[in-house]
Each structure stands twice: as structure tokens, then as C-alpha cells.
Write a protein that binds this DNA or RNA. Sequence first.
DNA 1: ACCGTAGTACTACAGATGGAGTGGTGTCAA
DNA 2: TTGACACCACTCCATCTGTAGTACTACGGT
Lengths: 191, 191
Amino acid sequence: MRRNPERRSALLDCAIDVLARDGARGLTFRAVDVEAEVPTGTTSNYFPNRAALLTQIGGRIYERLQPDPATIAKSLEGPRTRARVEALMYELVDRVSAFRTGYLALLELRLEATRRPDLREVLTTRIRADVDANIDYHLKSGLPGDATTVKLLFLAMNWLIVERLTLPDLFGEDEIHDLVAAAVERIVPNQ
Amino acid sequence: MRRNPERRSALLDCAIDVLARDGARGLTFRAVDVEAEVPTGTTSNYFPNRAALLTQIGGRIYERLQPDPATIAKSLEGPRTRARVEALMYELVDRVSAFRTGYLALLELRLEATRRPDLREVLTTRIRADVDANIDYHLKSGLPGDATTVKLLFLAMNWLIVERLTLPDLFGEDEIHDLVAAAVERIVPNQ
DNA sequence: ACCGTAGTACTACAGATGGAGTGGTGTCAA
DNA sequence: TTGACACCACTCCATCTGTAGTACTACGGT
């Protein structure tokens, strides 16, 4: 088992790309080796088996999905209004959509999680932390709405991103924009 | 190429189960043969290749997801209130969750669709028809809310089902129930 | 300056699996 | 008799995993 952490992260990043591009079917040690342009067998040396690779991918995606500090700082500026929530939602949808491979890989992992209890546990923990952090942030920053508001936005935005990434022709870009606006308008109380 | 339609449907139903249980990775002609308890090679005889099998699975799932006429008739009874919409949402979430394998298989297909334009087209057409039918039904039946209401409910309910089926420990059953109620309360206008 | 050791990169291979697809044979019904 | 289908068998093939062995590099000791 090799320990070089940069290389491990690089392998995980390539594994995310493979997972998004070729699906769970295409995710093999060899495929990751090829994607990372490292010699055959390298990924085998870094991960004892496929299950370990999958759970570590889950952790890695969430590492990369966190907004960078600059974005967080910026989001703390401005008035605490519904319009501000709307702006945050556009930012969220675009940030997640921009990491397309990560989001698609995460969906693959969710499906894998129905078969792998350990992976399910990892994902549940991570996502619960994420939801809680969002609720916490929302309440503390004085934005309008309660915990339920945040959860409902979470539900709607997630599926909106799914539609955008998997069946882009179902809702066009304009309609996606309008749906974000409508979701905020109806779910978030006015002031 | 064999034509017996009952057998074809039976094979597709088994393919749905395989897809939900073992994922895209496990969906092979042989696995379907085993699941359907038919001789090796049968599925090969009915579908020219994996791609055709996948697109036909997509069609089959949507056939089976439609509510039966009795359910539709029942849903036309009663007053046209927000409480009625809430009841319909509980029915929807439970009906879809009950066809667990179908929903999970559909998610697998969505991910496959990112790689297969023909599958993407099939799914887009089907789902658009489904969304339009729901909007149409909602408006014609005089339930409160407009097309956007229906779409927002569609977004929230879909992801709620995803959570329930893939990470059941994230939201408990009680919380899921509450979220359905909250979604209706906030998204659907009062009368 | 030399040597030994540890950790890692790279290479190669053993071993095994499992699937795709096709062609042939028997059966039944029109 | 013919056509369609169920069933069966067989060939070919494409990988994948996991590990063992070799080479390289850095570092610390003498």
C-alpha cells in the first residue's frame, strides 16, 4: 500500500472523471491507471480493492464540492433578503453544475450505496453534515426562512441539477433560471 | 430476433430488477437470463445489443410507473384544495417508492443517458410527456396552483424519493412525511 | 565519499472469470 | 412443408485483479 498523498488524490480525481464518463461499469483499476497516465497496477497499489476506492472517492468529491473561502466571504456581504437567497441559489446551481463530473460521480455513488452499507454510511454522514452546515449558515447569517426552508431548497435544487446534467433538453437553461427564481419566491418567506 | 411480446416484457422486467440490484455494472445478457430463469442466450436472442436493451427498459419502466385507472379516478374525487394536493403527493411518493427497482433503474438510465444520445432522447420524450400530463391534469382538475407549482413539486418530490431510496437514514420516515407537507404548504397557493 | 535501507515507481505475469454472439436442433402451429 | 421460436452448446475474446519481482531515489549513517 503506497502512501504518497498527492498521488492518491490525483488518482481519486481521475477516478471521479472515469466514474462520471464511463459509469460504475467502467470504473476499474486499469481505467484509473489509464486516465491518470500512470503505469498499470498503480491504482491497485494504492487501494486494496474497489470498495475502498469507492468510499474514498465519496470523501474526495465532498472535499472538492465545498465552496472556497472567497465565495463564502462574498456570500456574507449584502442585505439579508430573499433576493440574496436567490443570488446564492444561482451561485450554488452553477458551482455544482460546473463540477459536472463530481456531481455525476456522486449520483453513481448513491446508487452503489444501495448495495454497500459502508459507502452508504460515508455518504449519509457527509451529506448530513452538509445539510446541517447549510441550515446553520442560513440561520446564523439572518437570511429569511427556517430549517425547513433550507431543506426544501436543497430538495428542489438537487433535482434541478440532476435534470440539467442528465437530460438538458427537458428544461432549457431559461426555464432552469426561472425555476430557481420561482422556488425561492415560493419557498422562502418574504423578509 | 424473437418477437414473443410477453416474453420480451418479462425479460425487460427482470432486466429492471437486475439493473436496480446490481447496477449498470451487473446488467448483462446472462444476468437477465439468470434472473428470468430462462436458458442462456435467450436475452441475446431478444435484443441485438446492450444499447437496445437499455432503451427498451426505459420505455418499460414508464409503462409501469403510470398510475392505474382506479387511482386516477379516485384522485378526481373530493374538493379541489391544497389538502387534496397534499394527499396526492403522499400517494405519489408512496407509489413511486413502492416500485423501488423501477425508480433506481431509472436513475441508472439517466446516468447512462449522459453517454447515449438515443437513450437520452427516449427519456427526455417520456419524462416531458409525464410532466406535461401532470400539469395538464392539475390545471384541468381545478387544483390550486399553476404550471410552475407542478414543476416545483415535481423537483422536490423527485429528490425526496432519491433520498428515501438511496440514503434512508439521512431523513427518517417522519421527516419525509413532514417535508412533503411543508413542500405543499409553501409551493401550492392556499385555495 | 561510500553504503545500506526504506519507500516507492514501474513491469510483468499468473490466474481466473465471465460474457458476447452465433449456429444448430427439436418442436409446434399454420 | 415452412417458419418462428425455445433451447442448448460452443467458440472466441476481452479484461481485470492481485501480486511478485525489479529498479530507482532519497536519506541517514559511517
